[in-house]
Simulated assay, not measured.
Amino acid sequence: MALFEADLPPMTTSIGHATADGIWVQGYDLAQELMGEVDFGGVFFLLVSGRLPTLGESRLFNAVLVALADHGLTPSALAARLTFTGAPEAIQGAVAAGVLGAGSEFLGVFENAGRMLRRAGPIPDDDDQALQRLAVGIVDSYRSRNQRLPGFGHPFHKGGDPRVVRLLGLAREHDLCGPHVRLMLRVESLATSSSGKPLPLNAGGMCGALLCDLGIDTAALRGVAVVSRAAGIVGHIAEEARAPIGRALWYMAERETHYQPRRGPHAPGAEQEDDRG
């Protein structure tokens, strides 16, 4: 055992450390240099990137967090409210229930879009034709596998996601439209549905591209979305506590869902099968 322990590499962290008279986060004194001086978005950026953002980066990163904070009674909000209905004494369980569904359909688009862009390889800066070829390659690759492009289309914003317009405007205002955003916009010009209709870029896709340009590690992209939506979920739970709808949702599901057995003597067509037998 001693030999095994001697072979272990030293364990280090730069995230946080506490002493008898201070708390340190990424090399900054939490109480003196961050609290009251840097907003939560800036500290979150510091935690995932290792540096404080510039003024423009801070404004854009905070806008990304705001963009996904809430979108109404989405599956994540419903999961949180219904879990709170069953266990109101454990709000952490309801928050967890709301974010556990972060995947390809909801919240995971940040990561999926970022991986798509970063898998494309080096993105040319001043070569429009090379950038177009890269975009064509991405679209053709997904079409050949019959897979949906991550970050495109929206169940409600058929004509375009208003958050994309705002985020793109902020990025241009602060000169933060980097190569990943430029490539994503080229992909958007080629993205179409199976019926041939154009697929507009959604907020998840734009946020994924922006975060890539801000240097956020791919592994952390979905985490940014989860932190953003967690704020909205806590808001839903706070409302559920004072104006509950969880039981109404449960009763509505019971009322509107019809039991239909697939097997047994009461299954549809069972009598006909018996007659033929």
Rank of each mutant, 00 (worst) to 15 (best):
S14K: 05
D126E: 09
R51Y: 10
V164N: 01
F106N: 03
A6H: 13
R186D: 09
M184G: 08
L100F: 13
G153R: 07
L214N: 02
T257W: 05
G98R: 07
R145M: 12
N146T: 05
R276L: 12
D161V: 02
A219E: 09
G36H: 01
I15A: 13
H236Q: 11
E273F: 00
G169I: 11
T257P: 11
G93V: 04
A231Q: 06
S189H: 05
D29C: 01
T12H: 05
G86V: 10
G246L: 15
D21I: 10
S195A: 15
V234A: 13
C212M: 14
L190I: 11
R172T: 01
R186M: 13
M116C: 04
L65D: 04
G98W: 01
P53R: 08
L210I: 06
I123Y: 11
E173M: 13
L30W: 15
P124G: 13
V224R: 06
D125S: 15
T85Q: 09
T54R: 14
D275C: 02
L82R: 02
A209N: 09
G22H: 14
L183W: 05
A225W: 09
E188G: 02
A94I: 01
G50W: 06
I15L: 14
V64N: 05
P53W: 04
R172G: 08
S104N: 10
V234Q: 03
G205N: 15
G56T: 07
D39Q: 07
G196H: 05
H154R: 07
D70Q: 03
P150G: 07
G137H: 08
G223D: 10
E239D: 09
D140V: 05
V99H: 06
E240F: 12
P155R: 01
G41Q: 02
